[in-house]
Amino acid sequence: MKLLLSLFILFLSHSSFATENPTVMMDTSKGQITIELFPNEAPKTVANFLAYIEKDGYENTNFHRVINGFMIQGGGFSADTGKRVDTLAPIENESTNGVSNKRGTISMARTNAPHSASRQFFINHKDNAFLDANVNKWGYAVFGQVTSGMEVVDSIAVVQTAGADKPIQSIVINSIKLLTK
């Protein structure tokens, strides 16, 4: 798998065919969100995200953490069972790529360990520059930007939540599909 990801990263960074950034469509129970990915700024993160799309398309996962005015986080738990879904190995943190956690950007979720991101992601609901890397700390790696469907993100951000910021009514990610390479 590492060889495949490495070859994909090499292809993206050196291909004369890669004239535009990859675009994905996230189909949710609240509507569709189109996201442009940034392989030049976050090649390992984009390759990781695309590997999950190829593996299972994030099918039938959910947004399990929603904080209005902050972010919506998903991709790591089954919408049916609520259990964690299988992950690949964690990836290297690319938060020093110069892209800020602004409203509408998509970033990798992780634990307090900087290189622990695997499958979960979040979409920033507002500008969250405090999540960016600086000389004193690791940040959260931005790897794309919502290009349409921000109204869907806004509608998810305002759902009613309970403990641990979990939506009371499940917000399902039906699938994420690659539209352009």
Rank of each mutant, 00 (worst) to 15 (best):
Y52W: 09
T180Q: 03
T23M: 01
R84A: 13
M1E: 14
T180D: 02
F130L: 10
G139K: 00
D154T: 10
N124T: 08
E92V: 07
A89S: 05
L50D: 00
V135W: 02
I168G: 04
W138R: 06
S118H: 01
D154M: 06
D165H: 03
G98V: 07
A141Y: 12
I35M: 11
G69L: 01
Q73Y: 02
V146K: 03
Y140D: 02
S16C: 07
E20C: 00
F70E: 02
A133N: 09
L37M: 06
M1K: 14
L4Y: 13
S118P: 10
M108F: 08
K166D: 12
I173T: 09
L37W: 08
G149L: 03
A51R: 14
P22H: 14
N136I: 03
F38C: 03
A141H: 11
A133V: 07
G139T: 06
A162Q: 15
L3I: 14
V172T: 12
G82P: 07
T19I: 11
W138F: 15
E54A: 12
A109R: 07
M108E: 00
D154R: 03
M108A: 06
F38E: 06
I171A: 11
T105C: 04
Y58T: 00
K30N: 10
F17V: 13
D80V: 08
F77D: 06
A42E: 04
N62G: 01
T111S: 13
N40K: 14
H115W: 11
T147Y: 01
N174V: 08
